[in-house]
Amino acid sequence: MRREWENDGLTEAIEVVTSKDFKTAHPELFDRTLVGKTINQIHFCKANHYKNITSGSFVVPDKRDPSKERIVFAFCIASNTLYFIDDTNKIESLLGNMQKEFEYALTTPIVFLLDFMQ
């Protein structure tokens, strides 16, 4: 899934991809984002910023039973695009729920990420 919009003459986007597709399309970003790991090897939340690339990971426990299932995914913001790297197809559902709940006007990828975190 990819959603693009114009913002002050720039094309900005949000894209949900699998780790395999992200590694194939953007190997240099994959190496900085996941540092040789797979999504299954992520155990905590983190964020890094280096040379105009912001990346990190989320580990979100189930609110009903935190000791059970977790939603684990990574993100990367580069070249005006926010990539959600998700191998479980849960992010698209969360994004859909977010869009239904809020009358949402897309501004920038970083602002969208901050709103998503909230």
Score class of each variant (00 low, 15 high):
19 S>T: 11
21 D>H: 03
59 V>Q: 11
103 E>G: 10
45 C>F: 04
5 W>Q: 02
37 K>M: 12
54 T>Q: 10
115 D>H: 14
44 F>Y: 12
70 R>M: 12
95 L>K: 04
55 S>Q: 01
29 L>P: 09
81 T>Q: 04
47 A>L: 10
86 D>S: 06
32 R>L: 15
98 M>I: 14
113 L>F: 12
27 P>V: 05
24 T>W: 07
40 N>A: 11
31 D>I: 13
88 T>K: 05
51 K>P: 02
78 A>S: 15
88 T>Q: 09
87 D>K: 08
56 G>N: 09
26 H>N: 13
57 S>L: 06
116 F>L: 09
9 G>R: 10
56 G>D: 08
113 L>E: 00
90 K>E: 08
106 L>R: 02
15 E>V: 11
72 V>S: 03
106 L>W: 04
97 N>M: 13
53 I>W: 07
102 F>D: 04
38 T>F: 08
14 I>S: 00
92 E>G: 12
108 T>M: 08
7 N>Y: 07
94 L>Y: 14
10 L>K: 15
58 F>D: 00
82 L>E: 01
97 N>A: 13
67 S>I: 13
25 A>H: 12
4 E>I: 00
33 T>Y: 07
9 G>V: 09
75 F>T: 01
114 L>W: 09
3 R>E: 03
91 I>R: 08
78 A>Y: 11
50 Y>T: 14
81 T>W: 02
34 L>I: 08
45 C>E: 14
40 N>L: 08
57 S>G: 10
113 L>C: 03
106 L>A: 05
52 N>F: 09
14 I>P: 00
50 Y>F: 11
42 I>M: 03
61 P>E: 07
18 T>W: 02
86 D>G: 05
33 T>E: 01
102 F>Q: 09
